[in-house]
Design a binder for these strands. Sequence first.
DNA 1: TGTACATCAGTGAACGCGCGTTCACTGATGTAC
DNA 2: TGTACATCAGTGAACGCGCGTTCACTGATGTAC
Lengths: 212, 212
Amino acid sequence: MSETRARQTYHHGDLGPALLAAGIELAREGGPDAVVLRETTRRVGVSPNAAYRHFADRDALLAAVSDAALATLATAIDALFDAIPQGTRESVARAQLRAVGTGYVAFALDEPGLFRTAFFVSDNLERSSAASKSGPSGRSPLELLTVALDAYVASGIMPADRRPKAEFLAWSSVHGFALLCIDGPLRTLPRDQADAVTQRVIDMVEAGFTAP
Amino acid sequence: MSETRARQTYHHGDLGPALLAAGIELAREGGPDAVVLRETTRRVGVSPNAAYRHFADRDALLAAVSDAALATLATAIDALFDAIPQGTRESVARAQLRAVGTGYVAFALDEPGLFRTAFFVSDNLERSSAASKSGPSGRSPLELLTVALDAYVASGIMPADRRPKAEFLAWSSVHGFALLCIDGPLRTLPRDQADAVTQRVIDMVEAGFTAP
DNA sequence: TGTACATCAGTGAACGCGCGTTCACTGATGTAC
DNA sequence: TGTACATCAGTGAACGCGCGTTCACTGATGTAC
């Protein structure tokens, strides 16, 4: 959306960011496969090879788009996390876990293309470990999840021996649900039902962690 | 693997199944994107257009491959399910849920390409609702999961009001874990650890369902 | 049992497509003096 | 303040690639008589 009309000047002036923005738009519309180098230049109104002044190749562009998608996810979750009201250690811990899960799935449902792009792994490019992209607070979703789970233990609702690798368990549940909804057999589930089931997924995780 | 050497006869004699087998092999090696019509004919040793005698187009071939992948998954889970020893209703119910989850993740880790192909959704082609492909017993993974969860309620370890949509909750957890392992941030997790965490995922689901 | 012939399952060549990428280039920018 | 010139950011044309798909065809099969 950055530049649909023809440019006046020979130089674009801000082509790198403009290409990135176009790439993000493509990812939003169609996921990682839709991030096509020629199409991004077309959208910006520039010749295809101009992109090579700003990205080494198509993979580099896609990686930048993926990073941006991950950062957007991080920001969304961060906002939910920060909005949690004060309360007992236990209630805050529970609210934190719920915020991370809810934000994660909501982002996936709102922006399926970006979500898929965020977790797309190029064979050619080693990415920094996924979900390590952080929000404005500098905390990644994984870090926020860790904070929540540590608080579970600290507030006494989760036995310490269950704590190791608990991130993976919680993450698996919301990640799987998100993908079943956007890509998979649950893709016909209406949004309001998906939101309701999201809460039940989190209920299940919570109960699984806190069960005696 | 069906026909690497050149044919003697003009007619292949069994081209449809041979193409399907080659397509499955490609899916196994590289997922849905690797199911390339020309490559399947190349592997079978036949000209590209010969495929059109047996499949309407590339999408039809891919759909057939995807169905086959789904059936393989169903068969694997079915075998685990049938191997469950007799016991109390409760112990059988728990073993059933564990069998479905374990089989599901094991298949994903053993055959990531087939797993991804099984759940690939073509835009052009409406698939029968995923995981509805059944194993030799005629029961799909989703049906087996339903059986297990019904047994949870019947044996009294799961409150009936938790039963609706519980399939989605359990499915999400194992599906998400499988994808994090094969596609995502957990792809570097060694297999033995992945197997161990799989059991903990199932522990969590179980505790979530049966918690007081 | 032998032969004519319709049917079927393959071939060979070609198509248009859009992609990523490279080449030699040119117009604009900004810095040194 | 003005000018020369190196640097930079774009252009235009072209490349090779592999894909899915279509065309008119031909060799093999099997059925009717």
